[in-house]
């Protein structure tokens, strides 16, 4: 392609190594129902990816009940609210979490993403873009439930991790979430993760039930990421406001997180884009 910046591009290429295919993977973690341990999953995945040498930034997009900072024992002095108002740059509110992960803290009760005025949205999106330039992964902890603001983030992300527990209520809500996403974009990669499974058999049954429903009604098979077993160490780590992967690395759940993170690293979804397309999508979804 030849345009007015051709020469500049050539000069820049000579300076820097060829960029990787995916600059950063943008992954939204969601669940139909609340209380399935979604934020725990985000923290577990982020830390496991970090252990394997990946640079990870977590965006707390649960604007209603923001809490990943509490889960990790972080005390933000400034939050996304200051960024949206233009008082701080996104880089300035980044928190250093355990194992080198970065956390963008939200504050409870700030305006939903869909209701942001144009200026705030531009500040957020541009900040995210600058931050993601230096990261391998952007993990988005979305709010539970099927709201416009959640759907908007899901559709903008490259991949979705859908967290469910074996309980029927959670399963039904997970199916509803798949349906909403599928109707908007049948090719959007959705990874299924069963949290809090009592046994492998129980997890397999959960996966089968959900697969049966999505295949029958949507003609679609979900990609299975795996299961996180029910593990008393999780509760213990939450009480200590530390990540289970960090303080109980040999616990069953920590080992499961590590396996899943390795899987995620190997399975690159066939989707174009990376972060640039994420923020363009986010702006487009405005309608």
């Amino acid at each position: 392609m030849s345009d007015q910046a051709s020469k500049l591009r050539a000069l820049a290429r000579a300076e820097a190594p060829e960029p990787t295919l995916f600059k950063s993977r943008v992954m939204a973690i969601t669940s139909g129902k609340g209380g399935v341990g979604k934020t725990n999953v985000v923290a577990g995945l982020a830390m496991s990816l970090a252990i394997s040498g990946q640079r990870v930034v977590v965006l707390d997009a649960d604007f209603g009940l923001a809490n990943i900072d509490i889960l990790l024992g972080l005390t933000p002095t400034h939050t996304l609210e200051h960024v949206l108002r233009g008082e701080k740059l996104l880089e300035e509110i980044l928190l250093d979490g355990p194992l080198g992960i970065k956390v963008i803290p939200a504050s409870s009760g700030i305006q939903e993403l869909t209701r942001l005025e144009a200026a705030s949205e531009l500040r957020l999106v541009q900040g995210l873009q600058r931050v993601a330039e230096h990261q391998d992964w952007l993990l988005i902890d979305t709010a539970a439930g099927i709201h416009d603001s959640v759907i908007k983030l899901l559709m903008a992300a490259q991949e979705i991790v859908l967290v469910t527990t074996p309980e029927p209520t959670s399963l039904v809500d997970a199916y509803a979430m798949v349906k909403v996403v599928h109707l908007r974009d049948p090719n959007k990669p959705i990874w299924l993760l069963v949290n809090n499974a009592q046994s492998e058999t129980e997890a397999e049954e959960t996966i089968e039930q959900l697969q049966a429903a999505t295949q029958r009604f949507l003609g679609r098979e979900l990609q299975v990421l795996g299961l996180i077993p029910n593990d008393p160490f999780v509760l213990q780590s939450v009480r200590q406001q530390r990540g289970v992967v960090e303080i109980f690395p040999r616990s069953p759940s920590a080992l499961a997180f590590r396996t899943i993170a390795d899987q995620l690293k190997k399975k690159v979804p066939l989707q174009k884009g990376g972060f640039t397309s994420f923020w363009k999508q986010l702006s487009l979804e405005e309608s």
């Binding site: 910046a5 500049l8 591009r9 200026a119 500040r123 541009q126 600058r130 330039e133």
Partner: peptide, 10 residues
């Protein structure tokens, strides 16, 4: 292209 940060000031 230049790998430099950009910031829009509104």
């Amino acid at each position: 292209i230049l790998q430099v940060p950009i910031h829009v000031a509104l």
